[in-house]
Design a protein around this nucleic acid. Structure first.
Lengths: 207, 207
DNA sequence: ACAGGATGTCTAGTGGCGCTAGGATGTAGT
DNA sequence: ACTACATCCTAGCGCCACTAGACATCCTGT
């Protein structure tokens, strides 16, 4: 009984992941509008109702894909930050990596940031991968800066705006590099043009 | 013949606007997911095919609503800029007005910036109201700054990111004021912490 | 004045969507 | 062997965006 149920549990978990990756692949190949419960069911070779025995609805499937995406984004950002030549370049490397992620996996990015999901942001129920991704931004600012979370939010917002407006053709796609440069320069610089030595509480991590 | 056709043309234009405002009101009252061709047709007291004799499809209706929105946004931004106490405060006033617009008319904002539309951005076919709204941002930077369009794009992107992430609950809604303050401070300040007197080519319009 | 044609509008439908009820099928425990 | 249960599928619901073709209405030329 126990062993049998364990096997069932394993099979169930396996099928769960099968659905999630199928949805993701379909979305990345043809866009989310092509991801219908019918096509998804056909792709995993089950009927539609089994999808609903695993997820509450289509939104929940999108949320699961998004959660996977946050794990990958966090890893991608961490890699970029650690590969930065010096700590002072961490923010720039991170921002570049973020935009890279958004443009190379547009469907995944959409699931994470523009489609409606069940995921809880900025709360105690926030899933760890999501929090980890956000913390990568936070860690680009000095630990003694008590406004670093705010700084991270603004940086993230700006990057998101650039990513999404460029993806939908609302700003030209080919100016991203210059925009990125300008943004990082402005964010990294401490307010009110204080000299370099006095950026103790607000500036980015020093070299 | 001519007079009759003119009357028909007027009636047609009138009905066109009727559809657009009905769509907008419905969206603002119940969200865009409630705007279906059936409900819209019922609301304007015509059958569905009439909608299709005016617009190529639902996207075209959304685009028409968005276009209206750009006109209002441009006016709103211009008003805020002109009401700013001094030119140095124009950017801040503009940004605040932008976020105000986005939070107070979320459905309209969505039509303009997140839903797929037929509108052409940043091209020769860009509708004037759209261009006018963008130019409000551009005009916050010195005319002799040849990168002012780029600056405007980044500012706009950042505000858009803040608006949309806060609207979807991905960043806390109640930190907007502080984020706005930080963003404006960083954008207004010239790169590399140059002293105030030397911001000739990149900084905002001086007081 | 009136027939013929153009114009405009509606009824009724198509195929696809997310989602679900209820029955068939196979497995587990007594 | 038989009951009880879990699993899965067929079939269908009400909705969607969108369209074909019938019908009515109005304008025009004789």
């Amino acid at each position: 009984m126990s062993a049998i149920n364990e096997r069932r549990e394993r099979e169930r978990a396996h099928r769960h992941q099968l659905i999630v990756t199928a949805a993701r692949e379909l979305a990345e190949a043809e866009g989310w509008e092509a991801v219908t419960t019918r096509r998804l069911a056909e792709r995993v070779e089950y009927s539609q109702p089994v999808l609903y025995s695993h997820f509450n609805g289509k939104d929940a499937i999108v949320s699961a894909v998004a959660l996977d995406g946050f794990g990958e984004l966090a890893a991608h950002l961490r890699g970029a930050r650690q590969a930065a030549p010096e700590p002072g370049q961490a923010l720039r490397a991170l921002c570049r990596a973020y935009l890279e992620f958004a443009t190379e996996r547009p469907a995944l990015y959409q699931a994470m940031f523009v489609m409606p999901t069940d995921l809880k942001f900025a709360s105690t129920e926030t899933p760890p991968p999501l929090r980890a991704a956000f913390d990568e931004f936070v860690s680009c600012f000095r630990p003694d800066n008590e406004r670093r979370e705010l700084f991270a939010e603004v940086t993230w917002s700006a990057l998101h705006g650039m990513a999404v407006l460029s993806d939908s053709g609302r700003i030209p796609a080919d100016g991203q590099e210059e925009r990125l440069d300008f943004l990082v320069t402005q964010i990294a610089d401490t307010p009110n043009g204080a000299p370099k030595g006095s950026r103790a509480t607000t500036g980015p991590l020093p070299a």
